[in-house]
Nucleic acid binder design. Structure first.
Length: 1036
RNA sequence: GCCCGAGUGGUGGAAUUGGUAGACACGAAGGACUUAAAAUCCUUUGGCCAUUGCGGUCGUGCCGGUUCGAGUCCGGCCUCGGGUACCA
């Protein structure tokens, strides 16, 4: 054994822990750098190789920054609340805290083995009262705040109350729910309860009746980002729309700032796009339509006011409150039927029927304010109550949904926009609506001839003047539902007095999660906390029984890491001023519309309060790609099919010298194969069937004068050559026994190697555990022992090997393709795992996990070790001065690795190390002058090996505490450059020229060479392009 | 449907600003060392043609363009992956 990674890795992990090497504290002498991984949820399954990918990258970067002289904050903790532990509690009665604790220790054990540089003294857990105290505290601040649109930031509710008492709410501009205007007198006259109800409309954390995503199977509501395609993201349970009283966070108040903030942060464009789409800002106008024969009006939101002359009908959402009053008696039955139908559909059904056009006519007509046209008012569920005003003016000519609706119900279509140079056409002949983003208005009254852009503002201006419309901005983003009907989450610091919610005094925090006798809802359908005994304040007021959602605790955890032990504050001003914000955040893109929006909102709110010093929490963010599984496949043989296939391959096209037919009928008998020339019958069956058939068949064939061969199926597996010999002998007329008594094969469970001819014809793929397969070769013995029914399996090999097929798919237990890092660490060590995960490819790209290449990294690690040792594995380091070639290798590597680290290109950095060690090995370099800086350089990637080598080099201080070596341009400069010479862009030969040579001289020297003459022969040189130290291109 | 991202050898990938396509690694084939195995080392390895050597030719999903020169830029298309979905 040359390099004993097990011993070395254990030794240094213990050393780091004992000496708290990774502990950091505020140090104003050094610049700070904050590297953070996304908060993991410790699931029962533990880590698979996909999880640590991001952790390894951030760890390398954190270690690199440390060597570069930064004071690096690199903490880790756990998002410990979560559904799986609670579901387990419901099933087994085990308290989720116990399950969570167990999972965390398993996680920690796995993390420790990989050699991360986390400062574990800063660990936080969302379920720890010392931590969730501050989650609850922040909720109180949200409750006590409102959003002032004049200052564009959050402000205290107390100030708002003072304003109300002095001036009423008329002049207040707030992000709030719909609230009637009142005067100061009216405010003062209101009783406590009425005042509280008004204030609720303003609070950033507020209680309201809302349509929620109710998941009956999980017994709780879910946020929009926890639902995908009408199913819960976790577990895939069905979700219904239901109206319930819920806590909400007024995140919509921050929509614009969340959008604008994206321009100030260094995230991938695709991630920013996802957030932009999710926030979904659209500018347009709102417009009031009068209703014929009524004083009522309908307000619509539109992004295209310019198309108002093309509006031919209106559509309201079925839940729209005006539907009742607008429906005429003759239409009542139809409207009722439609509303009933849409109500009973689940979210998923509704989505599945998107393509189906449906709706009902109310009987009323609205009036187009610009041309007085009557517009029939319909209801349809393609208009959503939750967006805009829940009503639209339908412009079928220029909107695909309106178009489909108009076609279905035979409503008129009028074109009002035409692209430049195109003449309008008859909409009756259209197959789809006309795209009108660019163009000129036609048939459009006072805006005819204007461009779309001009017309939009002209119509808004005209509507404003008439007092029937305004410019308006709408967002797709909804307020975040913050209640969960669950046990395992933060309790709300809320109690109820006269049915109105009040916050607990901050001194009462943390409000600890109570004990309950079961983790299920009560019989009356209340959340599990309703089971808690004495869940009241000291005064006897009942405490809120909902708990907070998963994103509550993870929205501000990165701030707590700055000052995790603080008893008096969320975090101290000093700590926040120093650490400021996360400089590098690494995690998966799946959090784009959840955690990453909520955390930004949370942080902006704390910024408004003056607590966080930066508005954005995560300055730079990298999404590591997903690691997909690489499944291995074996091919189970259908033996009958295989035998017929293989035999036919032998017999067809006269290969045996005579022709055969398949499925030959002779009277009422049928034989598998028959050769009329050789008068030979061949029958293929299982051994025991042949035993029964042997006598009657032999008798029959004797009578007919046929020769007979009965071939058992097992021969196709182990006696293929024997079959060939028997048939060819029979064809040649040699005497061959029709039937040979044999022991029957017990199992017909056969597996055929991937490249066996005809395999596709007679086998089916089957997943096999990847631990039984190495480099696509199946360990057949291990396979037999894998599952009891495989014990008798037989294999059809190629080149004495069983080659498996493979497929890239999601890593999952059922596909037997989950790679657990512990196994790899056991076999190759943590340093190899770390480097291999990086070597796999660019950090942000998704890639399949495949252990095939890991040997290469393992070899590199041992090769690095051998640089320091002689053939007898004795330490052998020279103090001689390094030669020019050696220094060149070193300095080139330093530069490359530094550049690659800076741009997070760790895969190419690993390559650079390999090239370096290959070259130094060739140079037989064992000079301290080279190996010392190289060891530091390598330490972020392979910290254990580096630490060991560093101590073998005679140092007593950890390599972690050293400085990153500097590279020297001069060490790398060459005097000559080998130019590729190309003709019309095709490289033909190379020429070695001095670096400083001027272009003229280069041209002349090149043209004078023999090789050049060969290529220019008979042609005229038109032009020569010389790019110094790059290429020479000759145009002929 | 819409919005992103990606297509390079048998495989993972490299080519950072338009300048030698295939670095590095795996796998495969052949060889050395060894009683043998492991480990290690050496040679070959994009396709086709030629092969005694020199070499020739095509080639970065497809079609076209810009350029002395395109994996890289532009236009059109195809395939795969991610996000989102009656958002007016």
């Amino acid at each position: 054994m040359d390099y004993n990674f097990k011993e070395v890795e254990n030794k240094w992990q213990a050393y780091w822990r004992r000496n708290k090497i990774y502990q950091v504290s505020v140090d104003h002498k050094k610049p700070k750098f904050y590297v953070l991984d996304m908060f993991p949820y410790p699931s029962g399954a533990g880590l698979h190789v996909g999880h640590p990918l991001g952790y390894i990258a951030s760890d390398i970067y954190a270690r690199y920054k440390r060597l570069k002289g930064f004071n690096v904050l690199h903490p880790m903790g756990y998002d410990a609340y979560g559904l799986p532990a609670e579901q387990y509690a419901i099933q087994t009665g085990t308290h989720p805290a116990i399950t969570t604790e167990k999972n965390i220790s398993r996680y920690r054990e796995q993390l420790d083995k990989i050699g991360f540089s986390f400062d574990w003294d800063r660990e936080v857990r969302t379920s720890d009262p010392d931590y969730y105290k501050w989650t609850q505290w922040t909720f109180i601040q949200l409750f006590n705040s409102w959003y002032n649109l004049k200052t564009n930031k959050a402000s205290r509710i107390a100030l708002l109350k003072a304003e109300f008492a002095l001036f009423g709410n008329g002049h207040i501009k707030a992000a709030c729910s719909e609230t009637p205007t009142f005067t100061a007198e009216e405010w003062v006259d209101m009783d406590e309860r009425q005042q509280q109800q008004i204030l609720m409309n303003y609070r950033l954390a507020y209680l309201a009746d809302t349509m929620v995503n109710w998941c009956p199977d999980l017994g709780t509501v879910l946020a929009n980002d926890e639902v995908s395609e009408g199913l819960s993201v976790r577990g895939g349970h069905r979700v219904e729309r239901k109206s319930m009283k819920q806590w909400l966070l007024r995140i919509t108040a921050y929509a614009d700032r969340l959008l604008d903030g994206l321009d100030t942060i260094d995230w991938s464009e695709s991630l920013k796009d996802i957030q932009r789409n999710w926030i979904g800002r659209s500018e347009g106008g709102s417009m009031l339509f009068a209703v014929e024969g009524s004083t009522e009006t309908i307000e619509v939101f539109t992004t295209r006011p310019d198309t108002i002359f093309g509006a031919t009908f209106m559509v309201l959402a079925p839940e729209h409150e005006r539907v009742k009053t607008l429906t005429t008696s003759s239409q009542q039955a139809e409207i009722d039927r439609y509303i009933q139908r849409t109500k009973n559909r689940s979210e998923r059904e509704r989505m599945a029927e998107v393509k189906k056009v449906s709706g009902a006519f109310t009987g009323s007509y609205a009036i187009n304010p610009f041309n007085g046209e009557k517009l029939p008012v319909w209801i349809a569920d393609y208009v959503l109550m939750g967006y805009g005003t829940g009503a639209i003016m339908a412009v079928p000519a220029h909107d695909s949904r309106d178009f489909a609706f108009a076609r279905h119900f035979n409503l008129p279509i009028i074109q009002v926009v035409s692209r430049k140079g195109e003449s309008p056409s008859d909409p009756a002949g259209w197959e789809e609506s006309y795209d009108s983003k660019e163009g000129v208005l036609i048939n459009a009254g006072f805006i005819t001839g204007l461009s779309v852009k001009e017309a939009i503002s002209k119509v808004i201006d005209a509507a404003t003047e008439k007092g029937i419309g305004t410019k308006r901005i709408n967002y797709r983003l909804r307020d975040a539902i913050f209640s969960r009907q669950r046990y395992w989450g933060e309790p709300f610091p809320i109690y109820y007095k006269d049915g109105m919610p009040y916050v607990l005094d901050e001194k009462m925090l943390p409000l600890e999660l109570p004990k309950v006798d079961a983790y299920l809802p009560t019989e009356t359908g209340e959340p599990p906390l309703a089971r808690a005994i004495n869940w009241n304040t000291a005064e006897g007021y009942p405490i809120e029984t909902n708990t907070m959602p998963g994103f509550a605790g993870s929205s501000g955890y990165y701030l707590r890491y700055m000052d995790p032990k603080n008893k008096a504050e969320y975090f101290s001003k000093e700590a926040n001023d120093y650490w400021q914000q996360v400089d590098l955040y690494i995690g998966g893109a799946e959090h784009a519309t959840g955690h990453l929006i909520y955390a930004r909102f949370w942080n902006m709110f704390l910024f408004d309060l003056g607590l966080a010093c930066k508005p954005e929490p995560f300055q730079k963010l990298i999404n590591q790609g997903m690691i997909q599984g690489r499944s291995s496949l074996v091919y189970r043989v259908n033996v009958e099919k295989m035998a017929e296939y293989l035999l036919w391959e032998e017999l067809r096209d006269g290969k045996m010298g005579v022709s055969f037919v398949r499925d030959f009928r002779d009277g009422h008998r049928k034989f598998d194969f028959f050769s009329p020339e050789a008068r030979l019958v061949i029958e293929v069956k299982r051994q025991h069937s042949l035993e029964k058939l042997a006598h009657p068949y032999e008798a029959y064939c004797q009578k007919k004068g046929y020769k007979l061969l009965l071939i058992p199926l097992r021969d196709f597996i182990d006696e293929m050559d024997g079959i060939r010999t028997r048939i060819s002998d029979a064809v040649k007329g040699k005497p061959v026994k029709a039937f040979i008594e044999k022991e029957s094969l017990k199992s017909y469970l056969a597996f055929v190697s991937k490249n066996y001819p005809g395999r596709e014809q007679f086998s089916d793929p089957l997943h096999v555990d990847i631990s039984l397969v190495h480099n696509d070769i199946l360990d057949t013995e291990a396979f037999r022992q894998w599952q009891p029914h495989l014990a008798e399996a037989v294999f059809i090999l190629e080149n004495d090997k069983y080659v498996c097929g493979w497929e890239v798919e999601k890593m999952s237990k059922s596909k037997y393709n989950v790679q657990n890092p512990d196994e790899l660490i056991d076999r190759y060590g943590a340093d190899t795992l770390r480097m291999y995960e990086m070597f796999l490819g660019p950090l942000e790209q998704s890639k399949p996990w495949d252990t095939q290449g890991i040997e290469g990294v393992f070899r590199f690690i041992r090769k690095f070790w051998r640089l320091f040792h002689n053939e007898n594995n004795e330490l052998n380091i020279s103090d001689d001065k390094a030669g020019k070639a050696e220094l060149k290798v070193l300095h080139r590597t330093i530069r490359k690795v530094e550049e690659d680290n800076e741009r997070f290109s760790f895969n190419t950095a690993v390559s650079a190390f390999m090239i370096c060690v290959n070259e130094l090995t060739d140079l037989k370099c064992n000079k301290r002058e080279v190996l010392e800086p190289l060891t530091i350089l390598l330490s972020p990637f392979a910290p254990h090996l580096a630490e060991e080598m560093w101590s073998l080099l005679g140092h007593f201080q950890s390599v972690v505490l050293q400085s990153f070596p500097a590279w020297d341009e001069e060490m790398m400069t060459e005097n000559t450059f080998s130019y590729p010479v190309s003709f019309n862009g095709k490289t033909r030969f190379r020429i070695e020229l001095p670096v400083g040579m001027d272009i003229k001289a280069i041209e002349e020297t090149t043209l004078a060479t023999e090789e050049c003459k060969k290529w220019t022969e008979g042609k005229q040189v038109k032009k020569i392009i010389v790019v110094p130290q790059r290429i020479i291109n000759i145009v002929v």
